[in-house]
Write a protein that binds this DNA or RNA. Sequence first.
DNA 1: GGAACAGCCTGACGCCACGTCAGGGTCAAG
DNA 2: CTTGACCCTGACGTGGCGTCAGGCTGTTCC
Lengths: 252, 252
Amino acid sequence: MSWTVGELARLAGVTVRTLHHYDRIGLVRPSARTSAGYRSYDGRDLDRLQQVLVYRELGFPLEEVATLLDHPDADPVAHLRRQHQLLRARLERTQAMVAAVEKEMEARQMGIQLTPEERFEVFGDVDPAQYDAEAEERWGETEAWAESRRRVSSYGKDDWLRIKAEAADVERRLAEALRDGVPADSPRALDLAEEHRRHISRWFYDCPPEMHAGLGRMYVEDERFTAHYEQLAPGLAQYVSTAVQANAARQG
Amino acid sequence: MSWTVGELARLAGVTVRTLHHYDRIGLVRPSARTSAGYRSYDGRDLDRLQQVLVYRELGFPLEEVATLLDHPDADPVAHLRRQHQLLRARLERTQAMVAAVEKEMEARQMGIQLTPEERFEVFGDVDPAQYDAEAEERWGETEAWAESRRRVSSYGKDDWLRIKAEAADVERRLAEALRDGVPADSPRALDLAEEHRRHISRWFYDCPPEMHAGLGRMYVEDERFTAHYEQLAPGLAQYVSTAVQANAARQG
DNA sequence: GGAACAGCCTGACGCCACGTCAGGGTCAAG
DNA sequence: CTTGACCCTGACGTGGCGTCAGGCTGTTCC
């Protein structure tokens, strides 16, 4: 499958001019051109554009996005982890701003004057793409983590095999529990769900119970995820979904 | 109290250059100059700057911010309402992006390929300051509301007096309940709390129970809000806080 | 088969919201 | 009365595109 500029632009919600620009600066280049010189984007170009758009949305300058994406030892999953983290930071910031506006309204209603410091405190670290101090820290944290992972990840393929095997193991035991008639909200099922959650947290991204519950819902709402489980055992998708959500309730 | 450029810049988390720029384009002008030509900002300039920064953060072009803020029949509360609404929209959008990243991660882990449409759907309406279609709608909604309020608000002062009187009435009845020894988690107290919530929702901004609970917490955590209630009756701040939160639990 | 129309191309200039000097005045402390 | 932090006003630069202009491509419909 391949796309023309116009198609991709519509798909991604950007203008053609933007894609031209990204091509010129080498940020997202079409993998091919037609004989007439038309840009032709393929699946991997889409991958790339998606990553770019997330980072852009987060306020990174394009040049930095380029160096990030072209950095050799940052695999796709690492980027997703990072984006996830930054988005959550942004969520917090927006929530803080919402709270600030609410506070201001409430203060007005009561005829209370807030101090200037208070009123501006939410604008402190405006820039989402933080380089400064605090960001170093955040980066450092991620970098430390990346380092500790890079060691393990240096034998790459084996590592992935182990992760996959671990996941398959949890899934197999969940299927067994289902087959044995163990209720989805029993301690045994919940423990397996918790193992599932820890596996994700360990290898992919920090996944607190609440988020895990969200994934659980997805397993029955999105047919492709459903299919993944159903092909292991009929009824497993619903089973896992229930167990995961029950476990989240237990943990929270 | 007045501030120099540098002071205000530090306070508001912007650069001096930015303030110069806002002065030049007439967006935020210092209300005075010293004999030496130094800019001197007062309290109302801070108000203005704060409003500007919120709108800027929301992605509005500065020129539009100017017309918004200089619009005659948009009082401060109307702006706060609007900002609140826009921030909540942004919150939803960010949550959607977080969810999208999580889905992508999960898909990768399972070896599932998402469709291009899915992967980009979150980038649909990128611009926070939406003019297009959907925005018209949102604006329309706000405008309709503004209209219906403008009528009431046309006799302005009276209106405000009524709002204040209504608020005072609820507060008085809460104080009475406290004096009469009615428990803060009793139906009577909860009903008064609910009245309080409706009053806010009606005159200020949509305030669902959950948000109301947040306000309740603030009443005991922020001394000035505490003082507001304590001066009506000792113990009232805690009483209202408890009632409001209990009511939120009841409603939710 | 040709005309119309949507879509693609490459310059090139414009614009917004500042960043970044340059060159020079102001002011409180020592 | 000097030092150093802070202030002023130009003026130019930059990032991330928007917006023509002028011209080629490709499908569709008569």
